[in-house]
């Protein structure tokens, strides 16, 4: 592959991943409203287009048209920086996720991953930590007590749950022996999904993923009923749109990460045995991955419309006194099992 061809292919891939994240986030808002409605025995949006499918567009137009308000007492630069960081960080995490097996076209290999850095997991952890800044800066710059409280809650919540999440990942890394998402996805062939070997780690990771994406039951940073809107109380127009959008992209990316880390990524049992041509298998792999992702997005919504919000002290209790010891136990357990049975793969 020449350098230009390489550049072109990467640029195209970035564009596709970016577009897909945005479109999925867009339709997640629609799906969320539909799921919420269905679970409450309603119909949900059904006026804009067939089945209300154009609803996200209408919402987007509305967001753009709304009046842009920047409070005079806020610090303007930071006020704008907040949502920008939130949006930016949620968009760039998609870069390390292996969306499917490599395509083989004309003797060249085209991996369906923007970049396979060998510390993929660490990269994601790092980016999610930066994502906290978006919320914190936005909440603080608004100069509003509700925003500040929301921002405080967000930062302490995310920092607390990042620890448990990291510890859950350590056990996974011990088991897989690599930090590269591509290798982790590639090794989960057949029924060797990591969930089978790391059930406890998966539960911890899942709970932490809910907390990291600020989804109910951990939506304390927003908690509409107590803090008006939490960190984005003062935001309007597209800046608010960015925050809300970032949440949905985060949800999409977390679902992708959960599927990749614990649910075999693009693998599906029995399909590999059919001996399909490589490229067809690769495309099917993408389909499987997205099926898993959509399931988890649905799961996120399902939980949101089932569970009430945690109380703040319960949240901290769960994070520090339950999840962290549990994940440490999980590390010890993984270590012991590996001591006796060796690498399980």
């Amino acid at each position: 592959m020449t350098f230009t061809a390489f550049l072109l292919y990467k640029a195209l891939l970035v564009l596709i991943v970016f577009t897909i994240s945005l479109v999925i986030a867009m339709y997640s808002t629609y799906a969320e409203r539909k799921v919420a409605a269905f679970m409450q025995d309603r119909l949900g949006p059904n006026r804009a287009g067939p089945f209300g499918l154009l609803q996200p567009l209408a919402d987007g137009v509305k967001m753009f048209m709304k009046e842009e308000i920047i409070p005079t007492v806020s610090s303007k630069f930071l006020f704008i920086l907040g949502p920008s960081i939130a949006m930016f960080t949620s968009c760039i995490t998609g870069a390390v996720i292996p969306w499917g097996p490599a395509l083989h076209i004309g003797g060249n290999v085209y991996p369906l991953q923007v970049t396979d850095i060998n510390i993929g997991i660490l990269y994601i952890m790092a980016i999610t930590s930066i994502g906290v800044y978006g919320i914190m800066i936005g909440g603080w710059a608004s100069n509003n007590k509700y925003s500040l409280l929301g921002a405080l809650r967000a930062s302490s919540q995310m920092i607390s749950y990042e620890i448990a999440m990291g510890l859950a990942i350590i056990a996974l890394v011990m088991h897989t022996g690599t930090l590269s998402l591509n290798k982790i996805a590639a090794m989960q062939t057949g029924w060797h999904w990591n969930i089978v070997y790391q059930p406890l780690g998966f539960v911890i990771f899942l709970i932490c993923a809910f907390a990291e994406t600020n989804r109910t039951p951990f939506d304390l940073p927003e908690s509409d009923s107590e803090l008006i809107g939490g960190y984005h109380t003062e935001y309007s127009s597209m800046k608010l749109g960015f925050y809300l959008f970032a949440e949905y992209i985060n949800m999409f990316i977390s679902s992708a990460i959960i599927s990749t880390l614990y649910f075999g990524g693009y693998h599906m049992p029995f399909i590999e045995r059919l001996g399909m041509p490589e490229n067809l298998a690769a495309i099917l792999g993408v389909v499987f991955l997205f099926a898993k992702i959509f399931f988890f997005i649905f799961f996120f919504m399902w939980v949101r419309w089932t569970l009430p919000r945690f109380r703040y002290d319960q949240l901290m209790n769960l994070g520090w006194k339950v999840l962290i010891p549990l994940s440490m136990f999980n590390i010890a357990l993984t270590g012991t099992l590996m001591w006796f049975f060796g690498r399980l793969h």
Binding site: V35, F38, M39, Q40, D41, R42, L43, W302, W305, T306
Partner: peptide
Amino acid sequence: ITLRHFFKKKVT
């Protein structure tokens, strides 16, 4: 419970 409601007839 919520899943069961998901598939229930809608009252709208």
